[in-house]
Design a protein around this nucleic acid. Structure first.
Length: 303
DNA sequence: AAGTGGGACAACCGCAAATCT
DNA sequence: TAGATTTGCGGTTGTCCCACT
């Protein structure tokens, strides 16, 4: 139902909200709640439609909103979530307490997206833009982008204690001067092909390498000091991961999924180019699927 | 001081899903 | 069960502010 239709029966005001209108809306919601948005304007004495009231409340007046700029951690979460979920801003915002989908969307479009494009990355796929990866203009990036790394391979590397990647203190998405310098040779033996991580495309790690071989947030590899004193960091990260996995219903499905036959697995990933037999056998052999795979991995896997 | 361009943010539009009658 | 209504979401546009010329 469109806005015109919901507002057609009443003469509604549009545009920016005045402080008086805000006050009326807050008072009304505090007194009556907002179980029925269509009745809120009438109760509040506002010449607005319910939809407009709802938007104003959710995006601006809600008391639990966090104002101010996004932290590097939040940027990392957005980046990781977007890689997996695509433009599902409401889903992404659920992982950022106090942030709205509108805020996240605006931040993405005004900041992260441009940043990625400036670095030669496709904001939709999170992969290097082909013309840059093959062209001579790729410059310093070119040498590290030849091999597509799957989400699975990168995450698994991150999950494994056998790997330590270079860490960059203070790394931020907003640091325009940072370019990842690959000090390791990511051998393709750990790359299990390319898979679809979000509705737009494939891969996970082009930008994760761009932001320092890892991203801030879920996929972040432990820094040295964090490995030495892990409890708080790990607890927080685990809580976030578990929450995320729960929200996509993965935890409910993971045990079942583990026991499903090959056909089910192939059905789930029939659009990918995974070698499912190889992956499954590798994972089961190393018990990776059960013990090392993080919830974030699972979310990626599930998507 | 006035004009202009770009960034950030708020709000609107249109659609689809969910819910109600 | 069908139609009407409400809610939620993503894309897009509008507005304000600030830096720059």
């Amino acid at each position: 139902m469109g806005h015109h239709q919901c507002c057609s029966k009443q003469k509604v005001k549009r545009g920016l909200w005045s402080p008086e209108e805000d006050e009326k809306l807050i008072r009304t919601i505090n007194e009556h709640g907002h179980s029925c948005w269509s009745s809120v304007p009438k109760l509040a004495g506002l010449q607005r439609c319910g939809k407009s009231c709802r938007l104003r409340w959710i995006n601006y007046l809600r008391p639990d909103l966090k104002r101010g700029s996004f932290s590097p951690e939040e940027e990392g979460i957005i980046l990781d979530c977007h890689r997996i979920l695509g433009n599902r801003w409401a889903q992404i915002a659920k992982h950022l307490p106090g942030r709205t989908d509108n805020e996240v969307k605006n931040f993405w479009n005004s900041c992260i997206k441009k940043k990625m494009m400036a670095q030669g990355l496709d904001p939709k796929t999170h992969n290097l833009i082909p013309s840059l990866s093959l062209g001579s203009n790729a410059g310093h990036l070119n040498h590290v982008y030849h091999q597509p790394y799957s989400a699975f391979s990168t995450i698994s590397m991150a999950s494994s204690s056998h790997f330590t990647l270079p860490s960059h203190e203070g790394l931020s998405l907003l640091d325009p001067n940072f370019h990842y310098q690959n000090s390791m040779n990511f051998d393709t033996q750990y790359s299990i092909g390319e898979t679809s991580m979000n509705p737009y495309g494939s891969g996970v790690s082009d930008e994760s390498r761009m932001w320092g071989g890892t991203t801030v947030g879920f996929f972040e590899l432990p820094r040295e000091e964090e490995m030495q004193a892990p409890p708080l960091f790990q607890q927080q990260q685990q809580q976030q991961e578990e929450q995320m996995a729960c929200e996509v219903g993965f935890d409910d499905e993971i045990n079942e999924e583990t026991n499903k036959d090959d056909q089910d697995l192939e059905t789930s990933f029939n659009s990918s180019s995974f070698d499912l037999e190889f992956i499954k056998s590798s994972m089961l052999a190393s018990d990776m699927y059960n013990s090392s795979m993080t919830s974030m991995d699972r979310l990626a896997w599930d998507c």
